[in-house]
Design a protein around this nucleic acid. Sequence first.
DNA 1: ATCCTCCCCTAC
DNA 2: TAAGGTAGGGGAGGAT
Length: 959
Amino acid sequence: MADEDDNGFGEWGGYFEAKKSKLEEQFAAASDPFRKSNLFQGISIFVNGLTNPSANELKQIMMVHGGIYHHYERPHTKFIIASNLPDVKVRNMNTSKIISAQYIVDCLENKRVLDYKPYLLYTNQKTTQPRLHFGKGKNTSRTNESMAVPKSETAAEPPLVEPVEADLSNILNNLQQVVATSPKNETAAKAAVEVSVISNNSARTAVDPAFLSEFYKNSRLHHIATLGAGFKQYVCELRQANGGKPFPKRDELRSVLSCDQVMNMSAASVLYIMHIDMDCFFVSVGLRSHPEWRGLPIAVTHSKGGNAATDVPVHPQADRQAELKLFAERFEHQLHDNIRADKVRSGFDKKMSLSEIASCSYEARAKGIRNGMFVGQALKLCPELKTIPYDFEGYKEVAFALYDTVAQYTLNIEAVSCDEMFVDLTDLVEDLQVDVMSFVAHLREEVRNKTGCPCSAGVGTNKLLARMATKRAKPDGQYLLGPGTDVLGYMAPTALETLPGVGSSLRHKLEQAGLRNCADVQRTSLQTLESVVGKKLALTLYENCRGIDTRPLVYEQKRKTVSAEVNYGIRFTNNSECETFLRQLSAEVTTRLTDIKRKAKSIGLKVMVRAAEAPIEASKFMGHGVCDTINKSFILAHATDDVNVITSHVLRLMKESGLPPHELRGIGIHLSKLSEATEVKKDNVLLQMFEKMSEKRKGEPTVEVHEEPEPTVFKEKENDLEFKKPQDLPSVWDTVGWKNSANKSLDKSPVNVSDRLGNTTIDMEVFAQLPEYIRREVLENMDEHLIARSSGHSDRTRKNPIGGRRSSMPCPPSSLPRMENNCSTFPVPKDADGPLELLRAVKPTTAALMLNGLQNHLLGSNYKSMLADWVSNEQYPNPTDILMINSKLSELAQSKQMGRIYDIMKHLCRLIKKKRDNVCEWHMAYKVIEESVQHQLMAIESYMLKLPDTISCVICHKM
DNA sequence: ATCCTCCCCTAC
DNA sequence: TAAGGTAGGGGAGGAT
């Protein structure tokens, strides 16, 4: 998965909290009874990690003394307060505003704003590695020469892990030595090279392990989609949390509104539907920090604009002319699509930027610039166009403010996207006896005050009319299409593409039939319309042109599909690179699935392949160029949320496509036919399933069952896939060595397996979904043989040394051969009784670079990125780090912060499951941490924490 | 007739 | 340089 957790998009709970404090802060700032001075006026800070004073204290200080506290770092954040940051983080950061918290304290003490330069934590001269700057003269003796190991803020705290703290530089030296002289052969060397490549440069192609998260971090379309889905969920959460409570803000409003704004009861049956929408959202958010640019043609884009956008480097294998020609041919029949047509007309010749414009201001639109247009193209229309960068955190912040503002008055909200929603105001209007547009004006004003961004709103008697009214209202206005309106007359001149659902294609089709505006359609019979477009579309059109729209508002929307797709930066040179990426993407999409607590029955792979005539390299940097698209899908016998199952099918579908990896330009995984995966239900349903299997087995002693997800397993659907026998399976399975070895071992399976399962083998897909205790029971009786075959540890017959608690799930098939190599490199003392003992036997000789970061941040809000850094940057889990994490968790346990422990364990588990190398070492690390924390909790609280997930791997199980 | 699956289209 | 995603609706046409 991408680092969803790090950029926060997977965690709405976290935002809920952030949002709450945001509101509190705003409230405090607005009411202002505690303001003591304006000392920090115009100064905004963002606190990264654990500091002294703490983030909360700094927030208080800023609020009381007129400053601004940012919950997220944003481009206009003046200072970042930190005690230290891990150097991986700092490496690509502008360090010129990272200062010590002492600055705030000293300003306060001196009652004036001091020069911040002496408080800079890093100075960024010559070396690429930022260095610590000990401006305050504290602890300077501890400066470490080569690494950023800041200590100034944490010196006051008692050391958590004594030996480490005392001997840090020695350990670091050790580490360097170990790395330099590592006996870990080429893998380590290769990994080291990779790491340095990553840190030098941002991840460019999908071959780079950091690519996926980097891409998602920067993709506007991904953010738009994710935020939209997030707010749909947010509305659900708000409604469920509210439980029919009244809205205090309404009463506040009641007393404020003057008499002339109050009106008499309207006809009881009339609905007041409001549609509210931010005006050119991304631009407005961006302009909050640059009000002086208001009124100029502005575009939000990745391109830096200006000269940088008219002289971009062109890849030697790209041929803009040829690609343009092909593009034009391909979309000849689609040139009614204005954006696309403009791209053809404007051409992508010369050296113009092909970066797309996500959002542009009304002034830019006046020059003919449109969203989705290339920057180079836009500059031709308007050379003075100003481009501004994305501010994804800002969009989220503003979107929350918008939703929260509306939610104070009503929860009859249908989320459309992060900046747009429908709201049923009927009961509010009746309750307050207020003129609906007065309320809308009040609401818009409040939104503007809270967000600093303008919005427009329309009100109508249905969703369609509300939308139409918003169109009229924009920009920065409001409009009512009330009960008395001549709707037919109002709609008549409306161009058809203005209607929701009518895009360029449909518009073109209708135009061919002589229909251009609503008046044309109003004159057309339903029958005629049906002959032009489909039945359902005809009816919608027929009604919409008359202003009729019977769709109700949907407050609690349920997801029906989950997908993850990347059509950018896909450049593979061989199968293994492709496979690695598919694994990452499978993990990503599976996480999205489990995040919404669903299982999927259908798995689809979408592939974009370079069109035969297209140039090898696309005109757009890392773009997909002109492509053919191929879809393949497969229906599972049972819904799954198991990453192994999904990955296996994805890999198989790709193999079966037979496409050469170097021609791929885009990859997507789509999961559909979703069902609930609630814990309670899951157990019952699967238990039943298992029982059914058992019954069936008794009935017919030679039932055909299967042991591994591959074509033979799933009998019911072949789809468009060729049926293949296992022996003919493509090479993934050859390299995996799973299927055959499992098969053989089962053939030779001893009596005890037969006793339990008769003649059946096991359908892994079903197996993966069984209740844990059944899986355990099954595995305890058979996995020795399975493992013996597949991993080479055939001589190991010892029972699971860790205790009965663990469950047993197979490792991802592909990890098996790797285990063979790697497990043996992990230092396993002969007589160790379990990971904990094992660990004790391993003397901590090295300390990871991340140590300090972890130590300082595990308690703070940044624990997620810290853990992510640790797991992704370290090749092997360092025992010292494990001890340190244990010690932190132990602290949390003692202070009874179970929620935090829960979060940390959940996150860590997820991270480790994503790990692709040395997996068993990481599995064991997790086990050690898990056992240790449960042990602690048992001692302190006499109970164990029920964690949402755990790691169970048949390989380490045997160690 | 009705359902299913594979697309295409649309929206943000 | 550049970050071309994601979900839902529905039509066409084949399977049942």
